[in-house]
Design a binder for these strands. Structure first.
Length: 780
DNA sequence: GGAGGCCTCGGAAGG
DNA sequence: CGAGGCCTCC
């Protein structure tokens, strides 16, 4: 129990009190993770079975980190702790218990893109205009309902909700919710909110299940409690009701997810739910300088809704916080990059010690440009996740089909990719049948009688081929490992071939992404039983185990390129929560951007923006730099901005305000943006880079010049001209220029040629349409 | 059937 | 400005 001596008084008390309800209010940088980690270790050392501990976090990364830290303290036993995000832990439980609520254990988890596609499909089927029923709005409304445990049927019966929807001209919203739920159910799928919703249903309606998990989770810990929503709150409350050994950790000042239903009241009201709660406040900040802590404290004091807490530090005063004024967003990018470059030189710092934080992802572009000009390597966190990329998602959709063929969104993605002649018309017809007969899509296309009676012979046989292919994969699901089956699917489906044929840079990158996914499968197979998996019994390394929780993974779960990590970090402030950096730049401190203009209508929303700023400030250890631009491009327009009110909320004694002029910023400063189009063209050419548009127009001009009158009319699908084309023939295309035929397929008149163009990469062209001219014979 | 052009629309955040 | 949807043309 040596480790207890590494804690300060308050931390130690929080770690040592193992019974009853405990609330830990942990200021930024106050050693929260350490307390959580030590408390779990202490539970185990005090005789609690790791199987009886449930630790819930908000990110996979946090769970992973905590588990490995606990493991170094208590050994491999740490693997038996139920630790993970709310979504991953309860997905796991739902796979055990799902039968109770009519879900199979192999249910699919829809990610937000799947959900949105399903909503769009339903709107179309119901003839609802997606300008009135904007898919995102519809989804938010459904999400809010689920978070508050209102089912579709209850929604339809609720007059108040109906009135709201009618007032906003969306009277059919309840119907859409109902159709959406039915479709998810029919597809054996749950969306993110369902994982929590159905867990609540399970614990509410099945006392034996509730009892089982209450007994299993004798001790419960919840991190980032300020960010729990009602649904999560209720799960925790239900599970903890028996023993009340619940410890929640959070910081009201860092609650930044109210927009997606997080309820700050959960932390503020903890005392009401558990009157005998013991509260500990971690107020000593070990991370930041006095200037930073002082500034952050003053900022957050402008909020009304707060718990009483005084964060302090015994660290040095440190440097003043600088404020830099820039004329444009581009200039801001330059000045940030130059500042980093200088700090790097003056302080012997390395790139990985710097973070640039912004309110919106769109702001990264001008920053990136600045960093590139200064040759500073950087890494952007967030953005499109690996698994969201189209090509990766397509292959994963095959995997999903193999595991759960009722998965309609997966089916729609792969049924005609790669192209196999099952077009829109066929798919639409199948969907109509599925809806009319209340069956799922797969049942419609896989049943031979339906297939042969409802589709013409050609279509039916194409459908049959597809169905048989999926079935052949399914047959191997339990007999071969994930890598073997995954590779087989990638090649037998034709997906790999299709991507391999595309030699454009984007095509090559898509191909590489597929290879990376397959490598991931290989690693998964070769790995020892899951480090971050909750182990009850070891499971075979089959494709379903790999695939089923992919929707819950984010990119931060698969980064960490060890030889390549000395980079400046760029991310949104939301993404920076829980991280720390010696040097932090917070950019875009402008009214209507930060605070966001969308948040100015209410005090609550403005306070959330302010907490966001508080989070940003408290990421820094040594130095904070704030910057803003007087004008910036937003949505293609130049807009003028005032400095953010948040700057004024920092007392002057912590600030060093200077206007910066980048050293070499001729482009960004002297070319006024209002006539940017011609200017930009000129400047790109001068700097030696050629845009794609430029390239294209050059090619066009060139081949237009060389074209002889009348020649265009010779190429037609049935002419002799075409018949002379074989693999290896050199041809000229009006737009793509010179190239060589590398492959031909199909029968006349629908012969499709793959042509490798010198400038434009590989293109597939139908000869009857593409007017190719022969310029050279195939080489023998 | 698919690529590219044109147009509209959104615009924050993540498991 | 960029992504995504629709239309056209090959």
């Amino acid at each position: 129990m040596e480790y207890l001596n590494e804690l300060n008084g308050e931390q130690r008390k929080a770690v040592e009190l193992l019974d009853g309800p405990v609330m830990i209010i942990a200021g930024a940088g106050s050693g929260k993770t350490r307390v959580l980690t030590y408390r779990v270790a202490h539970l185990i050392n005090s005789g609690v079975d790791p199987f009886n501990i449930l630790a819930l976090t908000f990110t996979n990364k946090a769970a992973k980190e905590m588990r490995s830290r606990i493991e170094t303290m208590v050994g491999p036993e740490a693997r038996n702790i139920w630790m993970g995000t709310f979504h991953s832990v309860f997905a796991k439980i739902l796979r055990f218990e799902g039968e109770r609520i009519g879900y199979p254990s192999n249910f699919t988890i829809y990610d937000s893109a799947d959900s949105k596609n399903l909503i769009k499909a339903i709107l179309k089927e119901e003839g609802l205009d997606d300008k009135t029923y904007k898919p995102n709005l519809v989804l938010n409304r459904i999400s809010a309902a689920k978070t508050n445990l209102i089912s579709a049927n209850e929604y339809l019966k609720n007059d108040e909700l109906f009135t709201e929807d009618r007032m906003s001209a969306k009277p059919k919203l309840g119907l859409v919710y109902k159709k959406y739920s039915d479709r998810l159910f029919k597809s054996g799928a749950m969306d993110f909110d369902d994982l929590l919703y159905w867990t609540n249903v399970l614990l509410r309606d099945f006392p034996d299940v509730l009892n089982k998990y209450q007994d299993r989770f004798k001790s419960i810990m919840v991190d980032e409690y300020q960010d729990t929503n009602y649904s999560q709150y209720l799960i925790v409350k239900r599970l903890a009701a028996k023993f009340e050994n619940i410890c929640v950790v959070g910081d009201d000042a860092q609650s930044i997810y109210a927009f997606r239903g997080a309820n700050i009241e959960n932390i503020l009201n903890f005392k009401k739910d558990y009157p005998d709660v013991k509260t500990f406040k971690l107020e000593q900040n070990y991370r930041s300088t006095k200037h930073i802590v002082g500034a952050a404290n003053h900022v957050i004091e402008h909020n009304k809704d707060r718990l009483n807490k005084t964060v302090w530090t015994s660290n040095d005063d440190g440097e003043l916080i600088t404020v830099t004024r820039n004329m444009t967003d581009n200039e801001e990018g330059m000045s940030v990059a130059q500042s980093i470059f200088q700090t790097k030189m003056n302080e012997q710092a390395t790139e990985k010690e710097f973070a640039i934080l912004y309110r919106t992802n769109a702001q990264s572009r001008s920053i990136e440009e600045g960093l590139r000009k200064m040759n500073l390597p950087y890494r952007i966190y967030g953005g499109l996740s690996f698994y969201q990329r189209a090509e990766v998602k397509n292959l994963v959709s095959y995997f999903r089909m193999v595991i759960n063929p009722q998965d309609e969104e997966a089916l729609k993605r792969v049924i005609n990719y790669p192209a196999r002649g099952i077009g829109k018309t066929t798919l639409e017809k199948a969907i109509v049948l599925a809806n009319d007969w209340e069956k799922d899509l797969w049942t419609i296309i896989s049943d031979p009688i339906t297939r042969n009676s409802q589709f013409n012979a050609g279509t039916a046989s194409k459908l049959e081929l597809f169905v048989n292919m999926i079935k052949s994969f399914q047959a191997e699901l339990k007999t071969v490992d994930a890598y073997e089956l995954g590779s087989k699917i990638a090649s037998s489906s034709g997906l790999l071939r299709d991507l391999h044929a595309d030699k454009s840079p984007e095509g090559v990158s898509r191909y590489e992404n597929i290879q990376e996914l397959l490598n991931g499968l290989k690693e998964f197979v070769e790995d020892k039983p899951g480090e971050d998996e909750i182990i009850d019994e070891p499971e075979a390394k089959t494709l379903d185990l790999f695939t089923r929780d992919i929707a819950l993974l984010t990119d931060s779960d698969k980064d960490n390129d060890p030889n390549n990590n000395n980079k400046v970090s760029l991310m949104t402030i939301h993404a920076s929560k829980g991280l720390e950096f010696p040097y932090v730049h917070i950019v875009g401190l402008e009214e209507n951007l930060f605070p966001s203009q969308l948040s100015l209508s209410s005090r609550e929303e403005l306070e959330e923006e302010r907490r966001l700023f508080y989070v940003a400030l408290t990421r820094a250890e040594k130095k904070v730099n704030l910057s803003y631009a007087v004008s910036r491009f937003r949505w293609g327009n130049l807009v003028h901005s005032e400095p953010s009110r948040f700057i004024e909320e920092i007392p002057e004694k912590h600030l060093n305000v200077n206007a910066s002029k980048p050293i070499s910023s001729k482009n960004s400063v002297t070319s006024p943006s209002w006539n940017r189009k011609p200017q930009l063209r000129t400047s790109t050419k001068q700097s030696g880079t050629v845009s794609r548009a430029d390239l294209k127009s050059r090619n066009l001009t060139k081949y237009d010049d060389s074209r002889e009158p009348g020649e265009l009319d010779t190429g037609d699908g049935t002419s002799e001209h075409v018949a002379r084309m074989i693999v290896g023939t050199e041809v000229i295309h009006d737009k793509f220029g010179k190239g060589e035929i590398v492959a031909m397929e199909g029968d006349a008149p629908n012969i499709k040629a793959t042509v490798a163009f010198q400038g434009a990469g590989n293109k597939q062209l139908l000869l009857k349409f593409a007017k190719l001219r022969i310029v050279g014979k195939a080489k023998q």
